[in-house]
């Protein structure tokens, strides 16, 4: 397939070649990043069909927008595209669900962070093993955690988070606020020193 390029060719160089229409460069870029993007998407979306679609959409978008890449980290850049595609897919799904007049609660469960979540024991063990922040994160409720993940880790806006999770924007804001308070409280419990709060 001609996907074997020199290992040391940078992502930026690959993206420039992709912008010029080079399929081999695209194949190389795909081999580097598609795997972890797939895992990351799978952790956020339970439906493997949707994950597959979003992944494909992401790289098809790369064909068109590689030219617009301005030298930032290629991984982060790719994730930004993938996250937006995921929000779009979520919206399309919701629209379809609305057409089928499915109750909203049911469409909500289409997004199941629990599917990829570890068992309770594992969580406790990991908390002990990996330290305070992990434990504190595990103490806050899954609803708050998914809001934190979408806004803080995935870099989505409030509106995009609302679409992704199928909740109103106001709820996203209040949950983000509550997540912060609870995290702070959990960390304060874990670390008795008053200065040991969250950074």
């Amino acid at each position: 397939m001609g996907g074997h390029r020199e290992k040391d060719e940078s992502d930026a160089a690959l993206l420039r070649a992709v912008a010029a229409g080079d399929s081999a460069a695209m194949a190389a870029l795909y081999d580097r990043h598609a795997g972890w993007l797939h895992v990351r998407l799978t952790r956020r979306c339970a439906d493997p069909e949707v994950v597959r679609e979003v992944l494909q959409d992401t790289f098809v978008t790369v064909w068109r927008s590689a030219e617009a890449h301005r030298g930032e980290e290629a991984g982060g850049w790719l994730w930004t595209i993938a996250a937006r595609r995921m929000v779009d897919a979520r919206r399309a799904q919701e629209r379809a669900a609305r057409l089928e007049t499915t109750p909203i609660d049911e469409t909500r469960t289409g997004y199941e962070p629990a599917a990829a979540m570890p068992s309770a024991e594992e969580r406790v063990l990991a908390g002990l093993e990996y330290g305070d922040v992990g434990t504190a994160l595990d103490r806050i409720s899954p609803e708050l955690r998914e809001v934190l993940r979408a806004t803080v880790v995935d870099g989505l806006t409030t509106r995009e988070t609302a679409r992704l999770l199928g909740i109103p924007e106001g709820t996203v804001k209040s949950r983000a606020m509550r997540a912060r308070t609870e995290l702070r409280a959990a960390l304060a419990q874990l670390t008795p020193s008053p200065l040991g709060g969250p950074a």
């Binding site: 290629a74 991984g75 570890p118 595990d138």
Partner: peptide, 20 residues
């Protein structure tokens, strides 16, 4: 394999964004 807890997964994901 999907068994990593969220907090560790998040920090790894952030790392992957910048480490090819």
């Amino acid at each position: 394999d999907g068994s990593l807890p969220d907090s560790d997964a998040w920090s790894l994901e952030k790392h992957l964004e910048s480490c090819t």
